[in-house]
Measured scan of single mutants.
Amino acid sequence: GMDVRRLKVNELREELQRRGLDTRGLKAELAERLQAALSGPSSG
Rank of each mutant, 00 (worst) to 15 (best):
L30S: 00
S39K: 12
R13M: 07
A36H: 09
L30W: 02
L16G: 00
E14G: 07
M2G: 06
E14T: 12
R6H: 09
L12G: 01
E32N: 10
R24W: 07
R5H: 12
L30R: 00
G40T: 11
E32T: 10
S43W: 12
P41R: 07
G25N: 02
N10Q: 14
M2V: 11
S39H: 11
R33D: 01
L7W: 10
P41F: 14
S43G: 12
R5L: 09
A28N: 10
L26D: 15
L26K: 15
M2N: 06
A36D: 06
R6L: 11
A28G: 08
D22V: 06
Q35H: 09
Q35Y: 13
L30A: 01
Q17N: 10
D3R: 11
V4I: 11
T23Q: 05
S39D: 12
E14Y: 15
N10F: 10
R18H: 05
S39V: 10
A36I: 09
G1I: 15
L21A: 04
L34N: 00
A37Y: 14
S39F: 11
L21F: 04
P41M: 14
P41H: 13
D3S: 09
E11Y: 05
V9I: 15
L21K: 04
R13H: 03
L30Y: 01
L12S: 00
M2H: 07
A31S: 06
R24P: 03
G40P: 09
Q17S: 13
E32G: 07
L12M: 05
N10L: 08
R6S: 10
S39N: 13
M2E: 05
A31Q: 15
L30G: 01
S39Q: 11
Q17V: 06
M2R: 08
L38W: 05
A37E: 05
L21Q: 04
R13Q: 05
N10Y: 11
A28W: 15
A37D: 04
L30N: 01
G44C: 14
R13G: 01
L34T: 00
R33W: 03
R5F: 11
E15N: 04
G40M: 12
N10G: 09
L38P: 01
L16W: 02
R24V: 08
E32W: 11
L34G: 00
V4N: 03
R24M: 09
R33A: 03
K8T: 15
L16V: 00
R24N: 12
P41K: 11
K27A: 08
R33T: 02
R18S: 05
P41L: 14
S43P: 14
G44M: 13
S42Y: 08
L16T: 00
G20V: 00
G25T: 02
E32H: 11
Q17L: 13
G44K: 11
R18E: 04
E32V: 09
L38I: 10
R13D: 01
R5G: 09
A37F: 14
V9L: 15
S43D: 12
L16R: 00
R33L: 03
N10M: 08
L7P: 01
R6E: 07
